[in-house]
Amino acid sequence: MSASEAGTWMQYSKRFKPDNKVFREYLSWLWKVCVRPILVEGNFGVQQSKQDLPSVWWIGTGLASSMPFHAAGHHSPQSEENVFNRAISSYAPSIKALVYARERSLKRDVIIESLLLVTMRKTPPDLPSLDGVEHEKKAILKSIHTYLKTQLLDHPNADTSGLVFHKDDSDYISGLMTVQAVSGLKLERSRIAYISACSIPTDTTVKLRDEAIHIMSGFQVAGFAHVIGFLWHSVDRVCVKVAKRFYESLFRGEDTKVEDIDVAMAFHESVPAVRVAYRNQPLIWAQFVHYGA
């Protein structure tokens, strides 16, 4: 880590220390009043092996739609009173959306042959730069198999990529592709969408949380059986670690046949790996979520 990176990390840690304390209390409260009773009723006990973990889908309504049920609990090194030790968590905006995603997943070929990696470090003037993008791209490319057909798009515009980038190739002017436009896409062979955004300013957290949920839902409607996203901002180095671990877990073998449980399991392994290192700072690891079948 460079001196500047270390300085940035220390500033971030100090700035969020009080909020992390409050958030840890919130996760404990959420575990006590909501999540633990549900898991006990469903007979979700502590599992010693990750392979034995059952799956659970969280569907919240109203204010509960943005609650981090997957991160509820106590996260001290010795504690088993948390969701990570009892279930593989996924989310869905509604039961109808979950059924739709599972039906589409069952109908398609599960062989993953190609990957589209889109990066945008430099953003429009009114938005913060995503300085960790290059590090995340390199980490992903090292984690995937060389026989996967990989297409790289750097700073493409919305028309060529179908994502949120800039209006043309000569100026970094915001070219917004709305959630409605994403939802209208019919991507019959799409399977996994990994949406990563780091270093988002703190004053956008509440607004971003609602937008992120709609974005993930939009990609599901477009045809993706699985969407990896976030509920609020994080920091670059954490995003890199989560993405790297996810792709390493997903493609750990030589077989590119990927079942739904493989995606959920790969994601379940990627977040706890960061959680172990930053147990007292849940605001930088509890926002990563999996929406899907």
Rank of each mutant, 00 (worst) to 15 (best):
F69V: 04
H70S: 11
N82D: 05
A97V: 00
G42Y: 03
N43G: 06
T123P: 02
I112L: 15
V118Q: 09
R104S: 13
G60S: 01
K50M: 02
P128Q: 09
I38K: 00
E136Q: 11
G132D: 09
V118T: 15
V83C: 15
L117E: 01
S105E: 12
R121K: 15
R86N: 04
M120L: 08
Q51T: 07
Y91F: 13
G132R: 05
L141Q: 11
R108W: 00
H70L: 07
S94A: 07
P77G: 02
P125E: 11
A87H: 04
H75F: 13
I140W: 01
G42P: 04
G60E: 10
A72M: 01
E134N: 13
P128V: 09
K138A: 14
G42W: 10
G45H: 08
G73T: 05
N85F: 10
T119S: 14
V83R: 03
V118A: 05
Y100W: 05
W57T: 14
R86T: 05
E80M: 08
A97G: 07
W58F: 13
V46F: 04
L127Y: 13
F69P: 02
K96I: 12
R102S: 08
R102Q: 10
H135K: 11
S79G: 05
Q47E: 08
I144G: 01
V46D: 10
F69Y: 15
